[in-house]
Simulated scan of single mutants.
Amino acid sequence: MMHLIDLSELTAQRGRFDFFLEQVRSRFGFDHVAYLGANPVAGTMHGYVTYPEEWKRLYIQKAFHLIDPTLTIAQRSISPVDWSRLEQTENFRKVFNIAHDFGITSHGLTIPVRGPYGDTGMLSVTLDTSGHEWKGRIASAIGELQSIAVHMHDAVMNSDAFSNVLRHSLLSSREIEILQWTAAGKTQQDIADILGISHRTVEVHLRSAREKLYSLTTPQAIARAIALHLIYPI
Rank of each mutant, 00 (worst) to 15 (best):
S169K: 08
K94V: 04
D6E: 10
S79Y: 12
S84D: 12
F102P: 08
H151K: 10
A209W: 04
Q13P: 14
M45R: 05
G15I: 04
S106W: 10
Y232D: 08
H199A: 03
E9P: 09
R76A: 11
A42M: 00
A141V: 06
S159D: 13
K186Q: 04
H107P: 12
H65G: 12
V95L: 10
R174G: 01
V165P: 06
Y59W: 01
E133S: 15
M157Q: 07
F162H: 09
H151N: 15
E133W: 02
D190Q: 04
R25S: 06
I60W: 00
D68H: 00
T11S: 15
L71P: 03
F162G: 12
H229W: 02
E177K: 11
T126S: 11
R167Y: 01
V24N: 07
T218S: 14
R200G: 05
E203C: 04
S215A: 15
M157H: 10
H153Y: 08
K94N: 13
Q220L: 03
I98N: 06
P233T: 05
E90D: 14
G185I: 01
V49N: 03
P112S: 11
R25A: 05
A141H: 13
A183N: 04
T110E: 10
K94E: 10
H107Y: 14
D154L: 12
R25P: 13
W83V: 01
R114V: 14
V150D: 06
V125W: 10
L109Y: 03
I5Q: 00
T11M: 13
V156D: 09
H32C: 04
A63W: 00
F20C: 14
A161N: 07
Y117N: 03
W83M: 08
F96L: 06
T120E: 14
E133K: 12
G108A: 09
S208E: 11
M45D: 04
L145V: 09
F102G: 01
G29C: 12
A38E: 00
R167L: 04
T105E: 07
H151Y: 11
L58W: 03
Q61S: 08
L166R: 07
H151V: 14
R174K: 04
Y48R: 03
I5W: 00
A209H: 04
D18W: 03
M45H: 05
R224I: 07
I60K: 02
V165Y: 06
F30R: 03
S147A: 15
S130A: 08
I138G: 13
I178M: 01
E22F: 01
F28V: 09
R210H: 06
H107F: 15
L166Q: 06
E9G: 15
D160Q: 08
I138T: 06
E144Y: 09
V24P: 09
L179W: 03
T218K: 12
L216Q: 03
S147R: 03
A34F: 07
S106Q: 15
A139M: 02
G118K: 01
W55F: 13
R16S: 09
L213E: 10
V95G: 10
K56H: 01
R14K: 14
D6I: 05
L216I: 06
K56M: 13
T217P: 05
W134K: 01
A227L: 05
M1L: 11
D6N: 11
E144S: 11
G185Q: 02
W181S: 07
G103R: 10
